[in-house]
Nucleic acid binder design. Sequence first.
DNA 1: AACCGCGATTAAACCGGTTTGAATGCAACG
DNA 2: CGTTGCATTCAAACCGGTTTAATCGCGGTT
Lengths: 366, 366
Amino acid sequence: MSTAPTPPGSLEPGAAKRATIGDVAARAGVSKSTVSFVVNDRPGVSATARDRVLRAAEALGWQPNARARALSRNRTQAVGLVIRRDPELLSTDPFFPQFMAGVEIGLAAHDYSLVLQVVGDEQSERAAYQRFARESRADGVFLTDLRLHDPRPQEVRELGLSAVVVAPEGTDPGPTIGMNDDAGVRRAVHHLHSLGHQHIAHVMGTAGYVHTEARRRAWQNALEELGLPTGTVVTADFTGASGARATHELLDLPHPPTAIVYGNDLMAIAGISAATDRGLRVPDDLSVVGFDDIPLAPYAVPSLTTVRQNVVAWGTAAARALVALVEGNEPPTIDLPPVEFIVRGSTGPTKNPPRRTSRPGGSRKG
Amino acid sequence: MSTAPTPPGSLEPGAAKRATIGDVAARAGVSKSTVSFVVNDRPGVSATARDRVLRAAEALGWQPNARARALSRNRTQAVGLVIRRDPELLSTDPFFPQFMAGVEIGLAAHDYSLVLQVVGDEQSERAAYQRFARESRADGVFLTDLRLHDPRPQEVRELGLSAVVVAPEGTDPGPTIGMNDDAGVRRAVHHLHSLGHQHIAHVMGTAGYVHTEARRRAWQNALEELGLPTGTVVTADFTGASGARATHELLDLPHPPTAIVYGNDLMAIAGISAATDRGLRVPDDLSVVGFDDIPLAPYAVPSLTTVRQNVVAWGTAAARALVALVEGNEPPTIDLPPVEFIVRGSTGPTKNPPRRTSRPGGSRKG
DNA sequence: AACCGCGATTAAACCGGTTTGAATGCAACG
DNA sequence: CGTTGCATTCAAACCGGTTTAATCGCGGTT
């Protein structure tokens, strides 16, 4: 080993302290103001001066310090995202990773950063927004997982933060990004109907969320459109365990459904597992439709028919809208790709008349 | 209640200028320095003065402005995480969400923020670290997904960033957080051996990653320990498609394995799907072991035997270590929970002598 | 009475940018 | 030739904290 001159993590000797705007100004033979004007593309700088400044900045490897800039501009040039999730759902939920990836794409062109906070409960969530605002850590925030009568849009705006709500248009008076992804549910029900199903049940996700309710309503409306009798709905909470439980509940009914539309893929796959445990075969005895099209969906046994929404595109659109909002520009017109309905192996024609099955004894998953 | 000029909650979107340290000082009848000393817990302030300051801050709802503080302390009080992922893997990978959640827990006590950047390729990744450094957006970074001979630890330190490497101890000369999760693979092989398996193959994740290679080596070493013949290994890339492909490849061999240990759950579940498509039954004809214990693992059909590591705890430990590093404190001693090996339905005794099967015609998943 | 020592307190400099208002140079105009 | 107008340029104030060095107050010594 060498005579390791630097303790791990400390500044390297090579890292001479970074150049400042003053250094650049001195080298270019102009004032700090002129340098500032140049880097901010403001008029009133001669071509020669601009040239000298750029050359000097280049030579010194200078780039404006975001900290100083944030202070004097009173803007952090960062947006915040608060993620509230059950620990279990956190690592399966396909929404956030994709949304974040999309946000980065939308932010990339504008030199904004994304500040993240993961919280477990509502109280911490509120504290997170307050912190973004009070400590000036973000100029604006995304609001996701909107609930019915959600107080957050109002609250964060009172904190002085710009906000973009990620939900179908009309959910909130402020700017919203999102679309009626429940159109996918409608297509699912029509698909099942065309296969001959008459008893189509629904397993809902956590009650109270806008998207949960929207999916339930879409399912219900589709049944009405088709003149089918009112279906059975069971409330679950998006976890696998709840999906399995809800499935058993439906299959325990005197007249069990021949098809179930789930609020997400995780519950749907757990539903397949539950049905299989009871000796039912999917799709011969029971057809299953999920929602999300997680990467595992094609590899479920049988592969899962589901609904896919382009969440990355949502993220990009939301980011662009939020940046525009923060900077006081006109929000860009957004054009989101439509939802897709993907037919795989878990749906098929009704084959057998409903027959009673029962839950297998004692064994518990987990 | 006092006549505070800006009681919390009365903020109008536009107006609402927040109290500054000067306002607090004036209200408490002391200087800015004293206020600063109080909020930073520095000695040399009388109890009465401290009391008055705290009371004034409380009344004004004041909290130091992170932007100003960042500038004068030359420290942002934020740490960065760069996520590089294939789009497909992004939404299935259980690592990042859990790691991030853990990081938040570790950061919470210290008032640090987490700045995130999601990138697609190596070049953008490098640019992301440079940006963190040049624009002073983070004081330190986490380095995950370490590759063999990874240049990043060196590079980011040259940029003047503190760094904590998330990898088994000894992988890097600097501070590392992580453990030999490959011990789980060893237990998996022993488990399979005890069930009577002699032909245990391995489907590797993307080559070149430290954890990929560690798992392969653990599998190989375990075979040697048990005196079993050298097993077959196929390289895949952690995606479902690659897992299915690798599985077919193994089952096409003249002497197909009776058990396969996969580099992650996604590939393992895709492997079950592939085997099922060929008419094999899991675990009777083929035993399968995954890695990660994603929430879906219990709901695969059959449920998946796998290895679970406490990634949240890693995140917390990594965050604590990074904050200590940034602040020049002694890194805390870390104590990570051991990996767990979870036996479910996808592994069982060898029942049938290996028999030839073949891939089903034409159909493609997706 | 003059002096010391020391904790408490504060004025002022500083961090690195942005922004304002005034000064400068120069050409065109009356 | 004195003005005026315009494009450049820059010094200085400012953003809201932290930090340094000097000052103040006061009891105890000599």
